[in-house]
Design a protein around this nucleic acid. Structure first.
Lengths: 363, 363
DNA sequence: CTGAAAGCGCTAACAC
DNA sequence: GTGTTAGCGCTTTCAG
């Protein structure tokens, strides 16, 4: 019975058993060559490889996971969701992933660190390492501490995925996030489009913290480049850091900025910075100033509906976390090839398409 | 040994075997009550149900599919992809689904009908029925023919999902598409925003075919409502049908329309209608007219990059088809509850975020 | 270095 | 009605 004959007769998927028979060895040996585990005589090895090629054998992943009956533990190292609504969304993504992957024997343990404390990150990351998970997902907010953590992971041979923002030389199995430079460009476009009058456009980093500076400066670069490429002197771009959490100070600073007559548009780079800017704009009755901000936070959605915020750019941290865990699980469970990075589209949300996004998020 | 005790001791997932032991029956019986197959004594039935509840039993889908070793055939009844790039995208979605679901024993057979021929749809749909697939996915472009087809499906007890556009009383297991009314509103907003000068906004149905009229009129309604709600006489909205495929006629008509001085913005409702409008705008050097169109067709992407098209609204027909098959497969394989409709977000694509979408589409 | 065999959790045919 | 059992395709011990 020739190979061809077989291929024709049983167009059914070919099994390890079939390979074994064709190669004149046992399933055990075939398994050994497929997974490179254990020693196999060169002769047998070559024969099996050959048949594997010829038949185009594709392992049945379902049977594989069932057979190995392995349980995997993934550690999710993220900022405390109670500190910030943006991170609450990430947390929801993790929770969604937990239910999704539970049936495959993948458990996800959440580990929260203090959003504002590098030390907290270090401490918790140590704990994570000590628990020797099979995989890790994290958002590396603090450069130095993250770097050290990743080194430890590499030494311990634990695969990790990075989401939200990347850091140089992180070398995760995959990075999940957005192109922040383009994000800044999109924001600029939304503010400027159709607006041919001269005027000032300001980019505000509200509640900015040192750790996110790289993050935000990329947005700023995109924002500035967009206007520069227009090559039109009538557009004036300025950027401001309002990195205090003292509300009165913030309000005072903002009041000054917003008072400028020639102010045409504002981009707030931090997702939770948008609400205070919105409320000030509302108080001052400035209806002709365009406002672009980030993410579907509760307040942001409200100000979008009211028409104070004109556009939101969705960073989709929920899906980022969900997908990150999915990638990790696929890597662990099915040994799937994972792309080095998965960049999310820059979703533009206005009052008109908000509902469509909210609804889609619920599935 | 109390239930509690067990829950604590083995936080491992509970198996059918465990249920059987706890209920004092065999796995066969448990299986019968879970799947309502075969007769079970009321007593046993209740006991098992009770244990099922108490333990919160979740079937292991992996084992389930492996054990049942069933093969499913899904028929995808879509327009010939060679006739239209939009449908080519759907076709790609189907192909993607094929590789995705192959390992689960789900085969998808594509059946093409002529995009412009209701009769072709009828003929092909007959063939599909005769092949008695386990599930069907289709885009019901022709109302009467689709209606009849769905009736037949119901009689044959074949589950079907509808995507792209819905028709009244289709009653699919799920509908996958977009909110077209909101789609029109989004388009209007993108044309009008920041533009405070008075002027005319036109909605063009290019190459419109009778069959898609409901489809397009919903977009038109959204478009008109947006402007009406602005309640400002300075905006003038008109709509035009250019339902000929005779290019010279089309060009002549277009030239007339575009010549109007007060024309500020155009929405082209059909995805492939955008390119001719774009090329005319370019030829006439009309740079101050805003253009909004649909979908990431090759030409549309080019005109977007060139700045002729300002925004594209992405209908994502590729993902629609992919997801539709996914829903069907989940229904067949895992008996998962499927939402009655899955509405896609209205994605706004500009020159600035185009790359982010193209890249995301490749994963 | 290799083969045999016992699982993984669920399904479904079969016997009683 | 119900229990038993042989698979599904792959993994992983355990002899030899």
């Amino acid at each position: 019975m020739s190979l061809n004959r077989i291929a024709v007769v049983m167009s059914k998927n070919i099994r390890i058993k079939d390979i074994a028979k064709l190669a004149g060895v046992s399933v055990g040996t075939v398994d050994r060559v497929i997974h490179k585990r254990g020693q196999v005589a060169p002769e047998a090895y070559n024969k099996v490889r050959e048949i594997l090629e010829k038949t185009g054998y594709k392992p049945n992943l379902i049977a594989s996971t069932l057979g190995s009956n392995k349980k995997y533990r993934i550690a999710a190292l993220i900022p405390n969701p109670e500190q910030d609504e943006y991170w609450q969304l990430s947390n929801e993504g993790v929770e969604q992933a937990i239910t999704e992957w539970d049936q495959y024997g993948v458990k996800v343990e959440m580990q929260y660190f203090d959003l504002y404390s590098p030390d907290s990150f270090s401490t918790v990351s140590q704990q994570v390492l000590q628990s020797t998970p099979d995989g890790i997902i994290t958002a590396p907010l603090f450069y130095d501490e993250a770097k050290q953590f990743f080194n430890s992971c590499q030494r311990a041979n634990i695969p990790y995925v990075v989401f939200n923002n990347n850091v140089p030389d992180a070398n995760p199995i995959t990075f999940i996030g957005q192109d922040l430079y383009d994000s800044g460009r999109v924001a600029a476009e939304l503010l400027q489009i159709n607006r041919n009058e001269s005027g000032t456009y300001v980019i505000l980093h509200v509640y900015d913290d040192i750790h996110s500076s790289i993050h935000l400066s990329q947005k700023e670069k995109g924002f500035r480049d967009y206007f520069e490429e227009l090559n039109d002197k009538k557009y004036n771009v300025i950027s401001l850091d309002l990195n205090t959490s003292h509300e009165p100070t913030l309000e005072k600073d903002l009041r000054e900025i917003l008072a400028k007559n020639e102010l045409k548009g504002i981009l707030v780079t931090t997702s939770r910075g948008a609400s205070i800017v919105s409320s000030m704009l509302m108080k001052l009755g400035k209806n002709d100033i365009r406002l672009v901000a980030y993410d579907l936070l509760k307040e942001n959605k409200n100000y979008l509906k009211k028409g104070i915020i004109d556009f939101l750019i969705n960073q989709n941290s929920k899906r980022q976390a969900f997908l990150g865990i999915g990638q990790l699980a696929n890597h662990l469970l099915f040994h799937k090839k994972i792309p080095a990075s998965y960049l999310f589209p820059l979703e533009i949300i206005s009052r008109q398409n908000l509902a469509s996004y909210l609804q889609a998020a619920s599935h």
